[in-house]
Design a protein around this nucleic acid. Structure first.
Lengths: 225, 225
DNA sequence: CGTCCGATTGACAAAACTCAAGTACTGTGG
DNA sequence: CCACAGTACTTGAGTTTTGTCAATCGGACG
């Protein structure tokens, strides 16, 4: 039944995508993928590896990042349940991916995807849209890294996480302060201090370091610009 | 003849793309585009406009950027001769584009492109690759904005410009110091001071503010990381 | 209960920003 | 050709923000 399913370009199923932009994909794209469990901090692929697989997070969380020669790290993105990563149009992976916590991921071999593309060219439009969506999110991150203050960066991050994964009122952060710092272009100490500041201002509450409750959304959104 | 031309996915013509990554596109993609002259600082499209056109720079230079509410500006990219911009998979432009200097650009209507895509699905793969290439370049910019010092940012910028447009030994910068600052996430003063520093260190020479000669490439590349 | 690791806090230093002044181009009109 | 105006760029002085280094706190787990 899975193999027989045909894709109509007019009847895609909606995919909740983490940029907030609805993206469509064929419902059975992942039916031929294999499921895999990745331990915490386990590498999924590394910069320079041939880009022969595409991934979708089932549960857990993944980070993609690049390292400068002296060890400085830039986290490019976090991927949560339902989100797709590792989709390159061609060539090698240009960044590395690691599981942040023990995660379940779907792995789709690139050659299977290519095969599907040959039979169903319309599918390529969907993949293009996924890439375009990622580009959009990336460019929006430019303004954060290039022009925002520490408090604006942290507020933007919390608002974004709040839109992506809330469990009964609280944001569960799977990533460490170091991950957040490397994503926001700050140091771990600045992230920590800024979160304390937001708590003192009663905009958020922190039942624990990894659990954040947004108490007053409005001023946080304002900081988000 | 133009209309009759068929596209073979195995015989694309190479397109020099500014990320340094070779990208292919059908040679006649722009044959139905109209040529247009854009005066200096003239808006080409604005954030929120329907993304109904795709552009290619013939001569001159273009910047894409976003504005925060309080006027802070982030320049996302510069586009020089031969480079494509405004290619969105769907929806509205999410950033604005302006001519930096008086420029000639090719304008391809989106509906014509869509028509082509219907007849030649293979073309979509090429467009996807262009978007993926742009994404790659965007993500590489993350490390610069998030983790590099002022001198590293300026050095990276000059090396990148040197690879894209050199006229008899000198880099001709079409953009102002303010444009560069907004691209690198710095202030105009820091950009100016940093360039002076690089000149004092004999890594570059500045016959004029807009003409840069790279005198010692090695240490500049090292700063580029 | 103690250890370990991640997170927080404090004191100080450095990098980049802000504000302000001065210099050097560019183009225009006399 | 020169004088002037306007803009862009450079430089300086002082401030702010963020980073660095070091110590402490606190929850998770054996």
């Amino acid at each position: 039944m899975l193999a027989q399913a045909t894709i109509s370009p007019t009847a895609p199923t909606p995919l909740s995508y983490h940029s907030g932009q609805p993206v469509t994909e064929p419902s059975d794209l992942w039916s031929t993928a294999t499921r895999q469990t990745c331990a915490r901090n386990r590498s999924i692929y590394s910069e320079g590896d041939p880009a022969d697989r595409v991934f979708k997070v089932v549960s857990g969380a993944v980070r993609t990042f690049q390292l400068l020669e002296d060890g400085r790290r830039q986290v490019n993105a976090f991927y949560l349940a339902g989100e797709i990563f590792g989709l390159e149009a061609t060539g090698d992976y240009r960044f590395s991916a690691e599981a942040i916590v023990t995660s379940q991921i779907l792995v789709l071999r690139r050659d299977r995807l290519t095969l599907r593309l040959t039979n169903e060219p319309a599918l390529m439009g969907d993949l293009w849209r996924i890439t375009a969506c990622e580009l959009e999110r990336a460019q929006a991150h430019f303004a954060l890294l290039g022009r925002k203050s520490a408090i604006e960066r942290v507020a933007s991050f919390l608002v974004s996480m709040g839109e992506r994964s809330v469990t009964n009122g609280a944001i569960e952060l799977p990533m460490s302060r170091q991950d957040i710092a490397d994503f926001l272009g700050l140091t771990i100490e600045t992230v920590s201090r800024t979160m304390t500041l937001l708590e003192e201002q009663r905009l958020i509450a922190m039942p624990s370091a990894r659990r954040i409750v947004i108490r007053d959304r409005r001023p946080l959104m304002a900081l988000d610009s």
